[in-house]
Simulated assay, not measured.
Amino acid sequence: MNKVLEINQLTKKFGSFTAVNNVTFSVEKGNVYGLLGPNGSGKSTTLGMILNVINPTAGSWKWFDQEPDNDSLKKIGAIIESPKFYPYLSAEKNLEIVADIKEVNYGKIDEKLELVGLLSRKKDKFQQYSLGMKQRL
Rank of each mutant, 00 (worst) to 15 (best):
Y88H: 12
V27W: 07
E67S: 15
K75C: 07
V27R: 01
G42I: 00
P68D: 05
F25G: 05
Q135N: 08
E103A: 13
A58H: 09
E111K: 15
N52S: 14
K93A: 06
P68K: 01
N105D: 14
F25L: 13
K29R: 08
L119G: 01
T18L: 04
G42T: 03
K125V: 09
E92D: 14
Q66H: 05
F85C: 09
V32G: 05
L36S: 05
L118E: 07
W61V: 11
K84R: 10
M133N: 03
I109C: 03
K112R: 08
Q128S: 13
I97L: 12
L47V: 14
T45V: 15
N105L: 06
K134G: 05
E96N: 12
L36K: 03
N2S: 14
A78C: 13
Y33D: 09
G59D: 06
D124R: 13
F64D: 06
K3V: 12
I7W: 00
S44N: 07
L5A: 08
Y129R: 04
D69S: 09
L131T: 10
N39C: 08
V98L: 09
V53P: 00
S41K: 11
G37I: 12
G48A: 06
G107F: 03
S16D: 09
T24G: 06
K12E: 02
D124L: 09
F17N: 15
V53G: 06
P87L: 14
E81C: 04
Q127N: 12
Y88P: 02
L51F: 13
F17V: 10
K102Q: 08
K125I: 10
L89F: 14
G117H: 12
K75D: 06
N52H: 14
M1G: 10
S82I: 14
S90L: 07
L119Y: 08
I7L: 02
V116G: 01
K43N: 08
Y106S: 07
D110N: 14
K62M: 14
G107W: 01
L89N: 07
N8C: 15
Y88Q: 13
I101E: 00
L119C: 02
N39R: 04
G40L: 05
V4I: 15
K84P: 11
V20K: 02
G117T: 08
I54M: 02
N21F: 11
L113K: 02
L36F: 08
T57W: 08
N39Y: 01
K93S: 10
K123D: 12
V23L: 15
F126P: 00
Q135L: 06
D71T: 13
M49P: 00
K134Y: 07
S120M: 05
N31M: 10
K93R: 14
A99E: 03
N22R: 13
N8W: 04
P56H: 09
P87S: 09
Q9T: 06
L73E: 00
T11K: 04
E67W: 04
L137T: 00
Y33Q: 09
V98D: 09
F17M: 07
T18W: 08
K108W: 00
N94P: 01
G15A: 13
R121W: 03
V116Y: 00
N52Q: 12
D110K: 08
K75T: 05
L113W: 00
E96T: 11
